[in-house]
Design a protein around this nucleic acid. Structure first.
Length: 507
DNA sequence: TTCCGACAGTGGGGTCGCAAT
DNA sequence: ATTGCGACCCCACTATCGGAA
């Protein structure tokens, strides 16, 4: 199989909006590939995620490519091998050698192939199909029920091996993907609700478990005998960075266990430190200077396996009972179980007052839906809002090409009368708002620099956000976390917008 | 026939490690 | 020493398709 066939498939997939048609196109490509190494690579490419997570190549490195080839000759397996070579250069210090290897690959690619491979490496395939639709395509290509493919996917971080199994061994081969302590499981994700009442409504009066949502990093901890492995949400192995978590897992009175939880830093009083502190600690390799370092805390909210028993399909109530039996109480995320919305609302207020991020409300009868953003988990977080002023706008990309999209946000500084930038946002805008703001901000334009259009600071916008974090990037030393647009406010002038002092008060 | 669950896209700030300057 | 880049932590929200109701 030639890479150019894959590029054609990619183009056809991008050209149609029908997901059924996309599925058929992807399935066709999977059937065409050699069932073995080739189909594994083809599946990975078509899911937009090559096997090699890190190649050391980003938009900057790939901005300038050599002259393309005229005739297609590359195969998917050759590209895969090249990505392996790029990955091997990471940390080797030989940038020049890597640049030469990049040149070598791209000079063998046609213009279309260059574009495809660059998008692939950058994770910007933009064909309206990623991993999830690929699972559909695998089922179609191998004529296997989708449920069987999805089941296998729970226990395989990558989808390439699923395609290989499905197309070489069919359903029985897929059924060999099971939970094995030491091998990562795709994490279950939560949908979100605006408040506790809305979250509770989704469960229609059935009892729920309301778990404290800790503001740290997600950890999946596996223990098998004395072996302990810690995975992140994206299933990277970070065992060597979290010795405290390893120690806790070893201390448990179990033979084997798979736990889902959150790691974070607490101060001496047990109050969570800002997320940035946890990110710094968990991002640092060993840093053996123990002096004065706060220990990392880990708390768990789910268990997927215990001493030979898989619990993924067990109802949450049973998993929680096992969790409470296996772990000391302080290692379990604080939780209430109830049908009463008022009780959950009170718990929410208390947990937020204690410095936590919010709650995750969970159905007690639901299994662990690995790899899915199921309705069985609903997160609720408090929301702040401010009225800020738009200082500049950036031209959008993809479906927002030709629209002014990403807005720069400023708070009024009463001392100087100027505006202090606090961050940007592109979230919360409807298509109608994008159309409106493109016209509006072009009318307010004062100048341009690259893809940024500067405007007269007169348009007020109501912004929702999760909190204020410290910033080295912005002049006020503060940035908004998860800022999104609520609405434009034409009933307020810039002079009536919120001030930097109001923002400081939220720190 | 209408409703709604699940996906993909569109980017945000911060942190680290590494290589080049 | 500082800076730029790549990778990866944390993400929210809207539009859309197609199966569910």
């Amino acid at each position: 199989m030639l890479l150019t066939e894959l590029v054609t498939t990619h183009g056809a997939v991008a050209a149609t909006r029908s997901r059924l048609r996309k599925r058929e196109l992807l399935a066709q490509a999977l059937r065409t590939a050699e069932p073995g190494d080739e189909v594994e690579v083809v599946a990975a490419f078509l899911s937009g995620r090559p096997r090699q997570r890190r190649t050391g190549l980003g938009w900057r490195t790939l901005a300038r490519l050599p002259a393309p080839a005229v005739e297609p000759s590359l195969t998917p397996l050759e590209v895969d091998a090249a990505l392996d070579r790029f990955a091997a250069f990471a940390g080797s210090g030989s940038q020049a050698a890597r640049a030469a290897a990049v040149d070598e690959l791209f000079s063998r690619a046609t213009a279309h192939e260059q574009d495809f491979v660059r998008r692939l490496i950058l994770g910007e395939l933009r064909q309206g199909a990623l991993d999830s639709l690929l699972l559909d395509a695998i089922a179609a290509a191998a004529d296997v029920p989708l449920a069987v493919v999805r089941r296998a996917a729970m226990f395989s971080a990558l989808s390439g091996p699923l395609a290989r199994a499905a197309l070489t061994g069919g359903e029985p081969a897929l059924e060999s993907f099971r939970l094995v302590p030491g091998r990562p499981v795709r994490p279950m994700l939560a949908s979100s609700a605006p408040d506790v009442a809305a979250a509770m409504e989704r469960f229609a009066g059935a009892p729920v478990a309301a778990d404290t949502k800790l503001d740290g990093i997600r950890v999946q901890v596996h223990r098998d005998g004395d072996e302990v492995v810690v995975f992140t949400r994206s299933l990277d192995d970070i065992t060597d960075r979290l010795p405290e978590v390893v120690a806790l897992a070893r201390s448990l009175d179990v033979r084997s266990v798979v736990l889902d939880g959150e790691a974070l830093l607490l101060d001496d009083a047990g109050r969570p430190l800002p997320f940035q502190e946890t990110a710094s600690r968990t991002g640092t390799h060993e840093a053996d200077g123990e002096g004065g370092r706060l220990p990392l805390t880990v708390r768990f909210f789910d268990v997927l396996h215990h001493d030979g028993t898989d619990l993924v399909d067990a109802p949450a109530a049973e998993r929680l009972a096992t969790l409470d039996r296996v772990l000391p109480p302080q290692a379990v995320v604080p939780r209430v179980v109830t049908t009463d919305p008022d009780e959950v609302a009170t718990f929410f207020a208390d947990t937020v007052a204690s410095g936590n991020e919010g709650l995750v409300v969970k159905a007690l009868d639901a299994p662990y839906a690995a790899g899915r953003r199921g309705a069985a988990w609903v997160k609720v977080k408090p929301r702040h809002t401010l009225d800020l002023v738009v200082l500049a706008v950036e031209w959008g990309s993809g479906r927002r090409r030709g629209m002014l999209s990403n807005i720069h946000l400023g708070a009024r500084d009463p001392a100087t009368g100027d505006f202090v930038m606090l961050g940007k946002t592109f979230k919360g805008m409807t298509d109608a708002m994008l159309t409106w703001q493109t016209e509006r901000f072009l009318a307010l334009e004062t100048g341009r620099e690259g893809h940024v259009v500067y405007v007269r600071p007169v348009q007020v916008v109501e912004i929702a956000f999760d909190g204020v974090q410290r910033s080295t990037r912005y002049p006020g030393g503060m940035a908004l976390r998860f800022a999104r647009v609520v609405r434009y406010r034409d009933d307020k002038t810039a002079a009536e917008a919120d001030t930097v002092d109001a923002v400081r008060a939220l720190r």
